[in-house]
């Protein structure tokens, strides 16, 4: 049972970590748009689009 002397402070430390992460998340607007990311993850085919527009858009036409 003496392990509790280690585990309880450890649990508290983790809790402090979670609180810190949460505060960071609120601060950086993670809760502003709760619908978007669900759609974004399906549609975003990585950087393909960006590359295409950067390099190909001029010669792709016609």
């Amino acid at each position: 049972m003496e392990s509790l002397y280690l585990l309880v402070p450890l649990a508290l430390l983790i809790a402090v970590g979670i609180v810190w992460v949460f505060l960071w998340a609120v601060k950086s607007d993670q809760f502003e748009d709760l619908e978007g990311p669900a759609h974004r993850i399906i549609m975003d085919d990585d950087d393909k689009v960006k590359e295409k527009t950067d390099h190909e858009s001029t010669d792709k036409k016609q």
Binding site: D33, G36, H39, R40, M43, V49
Partner: peptide, 26 residues
């Protein structure tokens, strides 16, 4: 619909000179 938001975001971010564009779905 959601695809419109995606389209606008991709389109804006691909513009030279645009540093970042974020669209709120809600």
């Amino acid at each position: 619909c959601a695809a419109c938001v995606w389209l606008n975001e991709q389109h804006l971010n691909a513009l030279p000179g645009v540093i970042s564009a974020n669209i709120n779905y809600s």
